[in-house]
Design a protein around this nucleic acid. Structure first.
Lengths: 150, 150
DNA sequence: ACACAATATATCGTATAGCGATATATTTCA
DNA sequence: TGAAATATATCGCTATACGATATATTGTGT
């Protein structure tokens, strides 16, 4: 678990490049969402609701897990989405504490457009990301200590 | 440039899975930074400053580009880093408008620890990410229209 | 059946980060 | 030299996630 060798300048550069690529994607996504009239988190919530791989519709709690936020933050996010008529709440018939979430037609339409452009953008970035991930995955494995350039 | 085929439910699920993986990484990173006593953006700024692949030290403007934020947001970020003695400003000798940024010893130490754990985490996630990227990259290529499952 | 713990969602006040608009200093160029 | 361009800095604003807390519903042991 402890670091196996000292980090070289090249390691920092690779990590920085990776983070840069991430931020470029996130910026693209943020701008795309905003062009569609919503905040990035709202877009991500729509996607999580639509793409939830289960028979039962997603609940507030599951949404929070998928977005890695606290349940009560998901509540607020859904409040905003419902106010814009992009999502509808409905009480779960089984457990009346739970709330089921479903996209409205309008929500579906916005998500479809955003998802198409995101798929293209990700396809565009894929080669670069794969390259960086491979470099990051190259473990030193051999005991030969850091012959780093720093 | 326009969407080549209709999105299937599986497409949404893949996109949602990818986004979920992203958020898990970002949550890890956020928590790691916070455990080290800094905000995520501060960590990312340290990495961008250290990993800037150039002979000259990075400027505020370049930092903004690497973090995909506005220059004046980078100013504020550097203000906070300098207040914590993790970064030092110094005027560029060539162009007195520019400010050069450099990590302090303390900044270097914190970044080194965070970078080591990030490298491990990324190595851990690499197979999953690669798999998802490959799925996302599978273009329909052939004119055969969407035989999607939805 | 009842008290109580556990779970799921909701409410409220707070802190923070990035932004738009704008300002100042420095450099470039006609 | 004066004007435009560039780089950094300041200020007020907005939005989002959070902690603490509240309410409603379900599960459990006796």
């Amino acid at each position: 678990m402890q670091p196996k060798r000292k980090l070289t300048l090249a390691d920092y550069q690779t990590l920085a490049e990776f983070r840069y690529a991430l931020r470029v994607f996130l910026r693209f996504s943020e701008d795309a969402a905003r062009s569609a009239g919503l905040a990035s988190q709202q877009h991500q919530a729509l996607l999580a609701i639509k793409g939830f791989a289960a028979m039962e519709p997603i609940t507030i709690g599951h949404l929070a897990e998928r977005l890695q936020i606290r349940p009560h933050s998901a509540v607020e996010l859904v409040d905003r989405l419902e106010a814009r008529s992009l999502v509808r709440r409905s009480p779960s018939p089984r457990d009346h504490r739970q709330v089921h979430l479903k996209l409205t037609i309008e929500g579906e339409e916005i998500l479809e457009r955003l998802s198409a452009s995101h798929r293209e953008q990700l396809a565009r970035m894929e080669p670069q990301w794969k390259r960086m991930l491979e470099i990051l995955h190259q473990e030193p494995a051999l005991g030969a200590g850091g012959a780093g350039q720093e």
